[in-house]
Computed example of a mutant assay.
Amino acid sequence: MPAIRTITSNPDLQAFIDGLSGEEFVTIDTEFIRETTYWPHLCLVQLAGSNEAVLVDPLAPGIDLKPLNDLFQSEITCVFHAGRQDLEIFHNLFHSLPRHVADTQIMAMVCGHGDQVGYERLVEHLCDKKIDKSQRFTDWARRPLNDAQRRYALADVTHLREIYAKLHEELSHQKRWDWLLREHEKLIDLANYRHEPSNAWQRLRLRDSNEKHLPAIMALAEFREKKAQERNVPRNRVFKDEALLQIAMARPRSKEELYSLRSIKQQGLDGRLIEELIGILDSDLDSRQGPVLKKSPKGKKPETMISMLKLLLKIASEQHGVAARLLATSEEIDEFARGRPGPEPDDWRYELFWGMAEGFRSGELGLSWDSKKNDVRIFSPNLKQHLAQD
């Protein structure tokens, strides 16, 4: 078994990146830990070109990862699997994203290999190999890494080259590149990777009844996000969502009132935050103009409509060989069943599913059981162009 090279110096990293100049694509993965921090702590970078795969140790003394960004800004396609967290790490480091990105999980979904298909499954299905997962719970911040850990890490990019090549061929054969490009545009939207404290309230699960408290909720969420970023701790270490909402609704004016809240009693609160919190709550929050929350439609949740739409989605997914989750999320189905509009006709998913969904909701399309074929039949001559039945 060939020795695994770990790059720990700037000259070696620069030389390896320079050697990739003629590549069409490079596969990339990272190992990181985040359980106790706000920002992910990068512990290892794995890279594979056509001739060599290496590990890069970002914890090595004095190493500068800038050559990685030179790679990202080149014409080489950077291939990840389920790469959102990897891209977040590199955005934090370089304040930019690779120019050309491919995500094999998205590619696999477009090709019909399942919803959010995992790397291990693709390795088995497309490469006919198995991955030893015994090292999956490694503490990647510890040094030195043993041979088994290094082999495990490197396998995340070596098999990925074969996976990418096969999915690339499938996409070309199925002529689905346009669908993939639209999904990749969503992946590399910079808004996904900006941690703006002023937008932190959007992470919260809010009810209609929270709207009158929204200015306070927004101010407290922004305060908590800033503190979490400054201290590099998870936001719930500052105070939990439940505490944030209780504080916003109760608007305590003193330390005693603050500590009378159930969630604060249970979690506790850093005493250094109390004065700032009271100051926020004492400010003229009601003069702040908050956005209007998206209202939940009144009345009973349309369970039957949701079930029928999910059945229609399953049919469309199987008919077109595209992962159902890529065509419609549960949230989109739920909102559509309650009367909200679906994607516009220029969305690639409209032709495959959402056009049919609109027809079903308006009563122009129906479902019945075909006893001869032992399958569901869609009976609407006006919408045959959306899903022709065999």
Rank of each mutant, 00 (worst) to 15 (best):
P302W: 01
I333A: 05
S317L: 11
L312V: 03
R340C: 08
K310R: 09
K298D: 13
L327K: 00
S317R: 03
Q319M: 13
L313F: 13
K298R: 06
R340E: 13
S307T: 13
T304R: 12
E303Y: 00
R338H: 12
P343G: 07
P343L: 06
R325V: 04
R340S: 10
K310S: 02
I315R: 03
A316Q: 04
G299F: 11
E303M: 07
P341D: 08
R325N: 13
G321E: 07
I306D: 02
E335N: 07
E332Q: 10
D334F: 05
A328D: 08
I315Q: 04
E331M: 10
K310V: 00
A316G: 11
K314T: 12
T329E: 11
Q319K: 11
K300Q: 14
G339M: 03
G342W: 10
P345L: 05
A324H: 01
T329Q: 09
L309W: 01
G342I: 04
K300V: 15
K298C: 13
K310G: 00
E303R: 04
A328R: 01
K300R: 13
L312Q: 00
M308S: 12
L313H: 07
P343S: 05
E318W: 00
I306W: 01
P343H: 03
A323P: 00
F336R: 01
A316I: 05
I333Y: 11
E332N: 06
I306T: 04
E344M: 01
R338W: 13
D347I: 06
M305A: 11
E303G: 05
G342E: 08
D334V: 08
K301P: 15
L313N: 09
Q319D: 14
E318A: 14
S317G: 14
R338G: 09
P345S: 03
I315L: 13
S317M: 12
S330D: 14
P302Q: 03
S307G: 03
G342V: 05
I315S: 07
P341K: 08
Q319E: 14
R340Y: 11
M308I: 10
D334Y: 04
E331Y: 03
T329L: 12
F336N: 03
K298Q: 12
K301F: 06
E331W: 05
P343N: 06
K298P: 15
L312N: 00
E332G: 09
G321Q: 03
G321V: 05
M305F: 02
H320N: 11
T329M: 12
R325A: 14
I333V: 13
R340I: 07
K301Y: 04
E318P: 15
T329H: 12
A337N: 02
S330T: 08
S307M: 14
D347N: 10
R338T: 09
S330P: 10
V322L: 05
M308H: 07
P302R: 00
S317D: 12
P341E: 10
R338A: 13
L327P: 10
K314M: 15
A323C: 06
H320P: 15
L327F: 11
D346Q: 08
E331V: 07
A337L: 05
E318V: 11
